[in-house]
Design a protein around this nucleic acid. Structure first.
Lengths: 207, 207
DNA sequence: AAAAATAAAAATGTATACAAAAAAATAATC
DNA sequence: GATTATTTTTTTGTATACATTTTTATTTTT
């Protein structure tokens, strides 16, 4: 089941399931080699998480990428993640900072796809948010980061963004290590909003 | 299907499905007079929306009410709804304000349950947010308001809260009519946060 | 020829039946 | 007697089959 979900998500991200045209349960059933029941289960989950949307009264489809949605997703991320980092702050340890630094080093690799970069980026952020001890808020933030992945099936934006993003991560970790919570939160807000703006610009330009 | 979902939600709110003990698909199947397939579909949706949580590797259960979750839900509402009202502001019309005022009058009725009050409260807020033309953000806010309903199966807090809340609604609508967007957003923030604090206090006191 | 009504096809929703996995109960061991 | 191993039972997950709904194609009517 989890495997099927991930396969579907991967195929949605990579555009192997055409956007905008109705998905038929039987076709998916054949395609993934399972009966319609697990397909229906997966569709139910993916609908709830915005990976699929209703198409008429019967049927679902992969939604078109849409700059307004991307803007909202990043705005929500910004608001909620800053709040969450505030909760995390008093509980951040050398261990969690070290773990975050390790992940940031792995983000250095040149041959990472946008998608892999996105996954590592979330791992880094999640490392910081875990210690907040705020399951409900954390869960919502995790869902938002998962949704953002739908927009990461391609390479976008200037290449230098990679380095910018990484430098910001380092700076953020330094601020946290120095106990400058307000500055750190401010930087996080900017970090997310700039990323969102770049994506939105790209989407506006290409559509 | 929608009917079954609403029945399940109502039974969760009213405590007719015991919290903390595992739900069995076959029991639910008998209880609601349908086969296990639609039950499974409904469980999938409710799990995704926080109405049910995993219980071990197999089975789900109704989660206990929890002040920390309530606090997070209201904090998220506060952050996201203020943002959304900002988008709404330029598009608010006399019609939408009038509609909101009508709903607020209906909130006057003395014999409303907490649950009915919650539904009307959302109708009022939704009226203001609809014109924002921000589907993704609106949808998330709607989900949060739906989740808050889980905490409204009982009467809590001082009775005078009802009038306070209504006066705040009126004041909010007046500010919007006068075009004082910043003040309106500030009031909305306070309106939501106070409601959240009252709920959290109640939950802390009773648990 | 265009629009409405009807009939055929296809798709979803649901029930039943079976297989795999998990939980509970029993038996065996230390 | 408590703990571990094994068996039994229960529960979930999936496949197939059927009913209902929706969509498409055809026919009829104006």
């Amino acid at each position: 089941m989890l495997e099927l979900l991930d396969q579907l998500k991967a195929d949605i991200i990579n555009g192997r399931l055409d956007r905008g045209c109705p998905l038929r349960q039987q076709e998916l059933s054949k395609r993934y080699g399972v009966s319609r029941i697990p397909i229906r289960d997966a569709i139910s989950v993916l609908r709830n998480q915005g990976w699929l949307v209703a198409h008429g009264k019967a049927g679902v489809m992969v939604p078109e990428l849409n700059w307004k949605e991307a803007e909202d997703l990043y705005q929500m991320r910004s608001l909620l993640e800053c709040q969450l980092l505030g909760y995390s702050f008093p509980n951040i340890t050398y261990e969690s900072l070290g773990k975050a630094r390790d992940i940031n080093l792995r983000l250095n690799a040149c041959d990472l796809s946008m998608l892999e970069r996105g996954r590592l980026n979330w791992e880094l952020h999640a490392t910081l948010y875990e210690v907040a001890n705020r399951p409900t808020l954390f869960n919502m933030v995790a869902i938002l980061n998962e949704q953002v992945r739908r927009y990461m099936g391609f390479q976008y934006g200037p290449l230098q963004y990679r380095n910018t993003s990484q430098n910001e991560h380092e700076e953020l970790l330094d601020l946290l290590a120095q106990g400058q919570s307000d500055q750190a939160i401010k930087l996080l807000r900017q970090h997310i909003e700039v990323a969102g703006q770049q994506l939105v610009e790209y989407l506006k330009a290409t559509s």
